[in-house]
Amino acid sequence: MAMVNHKTVIKLENVWKIYKMGEVEVVALCGLSLEIKESEFIVIMGPSGSGKSTAVNMVGCLDIPTKGRILLEGQDISHMEESELAQIRGRKIGFIFQTFNLIPSLTALQNVMLPMVFQDIEKSEREKIASNLLRRVELGDRMRHRPNELSGGQQQRVAIARSLSNNPDIILADEPTGNLDTKTGKVVMDFLHSLQEKEKKTVIVVTHDPTLAKYADKVAYLHDGKIIKLTKR
């Protein structure tokens, strides 16, 4: 699937991230540059310690770089305040985590509604969107269940529904299949793939699992804080 004319949604320009651990400086990213286009399915792959998590944080606007620029739809977010970043995340990026990260005290429905609460969406509207999304991930009969009453696969589907609740353009999945068995993992990956295919969403998957590369239009191999190889299909 060639993406020649599609515009860039996220652009990392020579991004450095240096953490200070007491006296010691740890360089997590050293000059990472990456361009992600609209409706692209990109897999960022690398062993642990390669800077994957830091890269996810940068792409997901969870953190700002020590040096370099990050452009989200052309807007420089490198110097934004935390609350501004939060609003951007809430509207434009849907997160999916390895450990699902649902709020344990809330039901599946409430979990899916939560991102919309932070965007001040009316309750009736929220309920409508959230229940539709849960039905889409085939959890229409589990809406009132809390996370501890759901299996891992079901929890991850709730998390996917939650990531879609504000209808973001970008879905960012950090090891989405890491805690799932192969079969359930495939269901999740197929669903993410269909989001790209049918809804033209940009899907970014970060993993150390080489088998997920087959879904990707583009695979970026990360090592020691920079991209050592970029393959396109």
Partner: peptide, 16 residues
């Protein structure tokens, strides 16, 4: 703490 992190990642502002 983790819950707070989750809420922030899905768009909660400091004030929320």
């Amino acid at each position: 703490t983790k819950e707070i992190g989750i809420m922030k990642s899905i768009g909660a502002k400091n004030s929320h």
